[in-house]
Design a protein around this nucleic acid. Structure first.
Lengths: 195, 195
DNA sequence: GATTTAACTGAACATTCGTTCAAATCAATC
DNA sequence: GATTGATTTGAACGAATGTTCAGTTAAATC
């Protein structure tokens, strides 16, 4: 049994996913060929099939990996506190997490329609789980009289859309720092749901 | 010169654009073949080239058509009034206009990366024009002391993202009517920029 | 009813696609 | 240094891609 540690697959495997992430984000899943991915990795197309059973699984792994990371990261840093503090934490977390992985975010929003039906169901469920995190925060705030939102789930969708929108224009080299962006958005979110 | 009026092209031309709109929205530009479009129209693939010079132009026509319509529709119904009334008008207009053409909206947001460079520039300019409509309303409101937003352009992006997000979940058959959705979002937008 | 020409067919074009697989390669173990 | 097995190559597969075009069809004009 040769090469069980530090083998090439430890290098090539991640490189395949990174190349797929970059190319899918830039050109779209359907527009990227396995040969393009292989080219970025520095390997022939056939070698990719040591790391993924097919192209669809490659997409699914990227999307599921992103959603799992998102939910795990939130659960890890989320500390139970009052609704206002939880909302601020969620707002800042969402902006920071999403701005750090624009490619994965892009793919996860754009390539849903290229998932086969069973994969689609899985990703949709994860997305709903994340949306419900915010909806629950809003409901708690309404119960406490701190927030005023007629439809918590709708408000959650609105806030998430607003926050995710940062990715469409924010650039690290831009005029505003991420910390400034966080402040601006937290100000808007707070007012949006204010009682 | 036979068949200059009421010819088949008056029927087939629109059918081609409708089929392309539906299929591009459902499966994505890159995933849709000219033969699929032709199949929906009830014609062979070659016949499509009587109505578009190539696939790229078909996409560009749909996107430019949508953006032109959007801007023209706003300019047509926009009546110069105070910032608060203008913001309410913009909010309701955006939700109504976008909810009526979900496929064109979807394509215009998702297929930007499939435009060739010169087409991309055109669409981006139109999008900026529309964003600036809202940014100008916000600036006017700030000057009048009615709104409080530290960064009008950022706030405009946030509000547009929030409003466009309606399309991701709103369904005509759903629990909430479009009029109710309008009310909920106007309430949130008003608070978001409130002084 | 002959003529005209817009509209469309159907086949072909050179490429490219995702995927498979026998053979070659190469690094770690014995 | 021979052996082993993970890793990769390179060619091949059938199917599908966007686009072209000579030829056919059919509707409006004369």
């Amino acid at each position: 049994m040769a090469r069980t540690q530090g083998s090439h697959s430890d290098i090539t495997g991640p490189k395949v996913r990174e190349a797929a992430l970059r190319l899918f984000a830039r050109h779209g899943y359907a527009a990227v060929s396995m040969r393009q991915i292989a080219g970025e990795v520095g390997v022939q197309a056939g070698a990719l099939y040591n790391y993924t059973p097919d192209k669809q699984s490659l997409l699914m792994d990227l999307m599921k990996g992103h959603m799992d990371e998102l939910i795990a990261a939130w659960e890890h840093q989320s500390s139970a506190r009052d609704p206002m503090a939880a909302l601020e934490q969620f707002t800042r977390f969402h902006i920071r997490f999403h701005s750090k992985r624009p490619e994965a975010v892009f793919i996860s929003y754009m390539e849903l329609r290229n998932l086969n039906p069973e994969n689609f169901i899985v990703i949709e469920a994860l997305r709903r789980t994340y949306e419900d995190v915010l909806a629950d925060i809003l409901r708690a705030g309404v119960n406490k009289g701190e927030f005023s939102v007629p439809e918590p789930k709708v408000a959650a969708m609105a806030v998430i859309a607003m926050l995710t929108g940062v990715n469409t224009w924010y650039r690290d080299e831009g005029r505003l720092s991420l910390a400034q962006v966080e402040e601006i958005y937290w100000g808007m979110v707070r007012k949006t749901v204010a009682a």
